[in-house]
């Protein structure tokens, strides 16, 4: 089952295209739409948008249920109470820009939802509504954690039916003052470490999908700025979606990675999906 947290906005409508496409490949073909009225958008507009969504689902022969949740203390709590505990389901939500171009994810409802453990979550930043929620080329940057495919698989598998290629990518952090002094041998050994990790991930994917129909490439970069490296690669390879894991282990970690993550969300040349990392 796919669960869509829809805020009733136009942006929510763009995110809903992903949800519909995900639901099409679910065994039960079910889509649960959750909406908490906040009063920011006229109810008549929200109703029209949700009705359009229901019609699209009917057209695609999906079973769709729409729930208007009572606003409790805040939107997040209302949503959390309504999200079923189901590890096989996927919650889809959007990361919207806040007033005065502040952060997309930090302190957003999407960030709180990413912390819930009721089901896997993907928060989407849609920059290309013309893509209609059907990316076929995915960039999957990985930070080198031991969790392997476990965290991103619930999201990645929903894209599989339409995929043409997946680029596994690992950026190894090298300070810019150190980079010119790095010997070729050291550089190569670092790259080898990165490639070995990505090949392990590739083997894991192949285990899960013995007859995969899309291409997977592995690429490693040494850089002092991992977020820039991801953005450049996304443009260079004409990627349509960056699927990024976010971790929330420590404050320092969050401060360090949070800036890069927001940078990607701000400047991405394509849509971005964020899942909960290890």
């Amino acid at each position: 089952m796919i669960i869509l947290a829809h805020d009733g906005s136009l942006y929510g409508e763009w995110v809903s295209r992903y949800a519909i496409n995900f639901a099409l490949s679910e065994e039960d073909r079910r889509l649960l739409v959750l909406h908490v009225p906040e009063g920011k958008i006229a109810p008549v507009v929200v109703e029209a948008r949700l009705e359009r969504l229901m019609n699209d689902c009917t057209e695609h022969e999906l079973s769709c249920r729409c729930e208007y949740l009572p606003p409790e203390q805040d939107v997040y709590r209302s949503l959390r109470h309504a999200i079923p505990h189901d590890p096989t389901a996927l919650l889809v939500c959007g990361t919207r820009v806040k007033a005065r171009n502040r952060a997309y994810l930090t302190d957003s409802i999407a960030e709180k939802l990413l912390r819930t453990h009721q089901c896997p979550v993907v928060a989407l930043r849609v920059t290309q509504p013309g893509l209609l929620g059907t990316p076929v080329n995915l960039l999957l940057p990985l930070a080198g954690h031991d969790a392997g495919t476990e965290r991103f698989w619930p999201v990645l598998r929903r894209f599989v039916p339409r995929l043409h290629s997946v680029q596994l990518f690992r950026s190894l952090n090298i300070h810019y003052l150190r980079y010119p002094h790095l010997s070729r041998n050291r550089e190569q050994s670092l790259r080898d470490i990165g490639i070995a990790y990505l090949e392990q991930i590739l083997m894991d994917i192949d285990k899960r999908l013995p007859e995969r129909s899309f291409r997977i490439d592995c690429r490693v970069a040494l850089s002092s700025n991992w977020s820039d490296e991801i953005l450049v690669l996304a443009s260079r390879l004409r990627m349509q979606l960056i699927l990024l894991g976010v971790s929330e282990r420590t404050l320092a970690h969050r401060l360090f990675y949070g800036v890069g993550l927001e940078r990607i969300l701000h400047k991405s040349p394509c849509d971005v999906g964020i899942y909960r990392g290890p």
């Binding site: 920059t127 290309q128 953005l231 443009s235 260079r236 400047k267 040349p269 394509c270």
Partner: peptide, 12 residues
């Protein structure tokens, strides 16, 4: 913007 094909060239 940068999401256009031309924008990608400009970005790179």
């Amino acid at each position: 913007g940068l999401r256009t094909e031309f924008g990608k060239i400009a970005h790179l």
